[in-house]
Amino acid sequence: MKTHTELEPEDRQLIAAIARDRADDPAPPLGEAAMARIMAQLPDAAAPAGAREERSAAAPAWQRKGLSAITGFFRPPAWQAFAAAGVAGIIAGAVLPSVSPVGEGVTPEEQFAIYLQSDDILATLLEEDL
């Protein structure tokens, strides 16, 4: 935006006000601490492309994929999913049967039907055979 010939007078006044503001409040330079932080990134960030290729070609692709699958399993999300599945199993196997509605308001006939469906009947029959 070097030429202001086609600008309206009000625009030129605004641009002059901006120029004064820029002179009154110049932008600060980059601080030394920030500069040091940038330069500290150099060794890793600007590693030569050849070196990066060498690193990535150190193992064959199938091996890298296999390793990443194994190491991926040990990352937190996989463990969390594994733990969640375990807790769900415990709830389904132990907690839910103990809070089933059998017992209250169940007629003797219904209790007998439940008994017939349970594993206890097998033990009883075995005892009778013996």
Binding site: P29, L30, I38, L42, P43, A46, A47, A49
Partner: peptide
């Protein structure tokens, strides 16, 4: 810089930092 030259990085930062700031 692509070959890891710190002096080149420093020159680029000094050349452009004022304008970007």
């Amino acid at each position: 810089l692509a070959r890891g030259d710190a002096a080149a990085a420093s020159r680029l930062v000094l050349r452009h930092s004022d304008r970007l700031m």
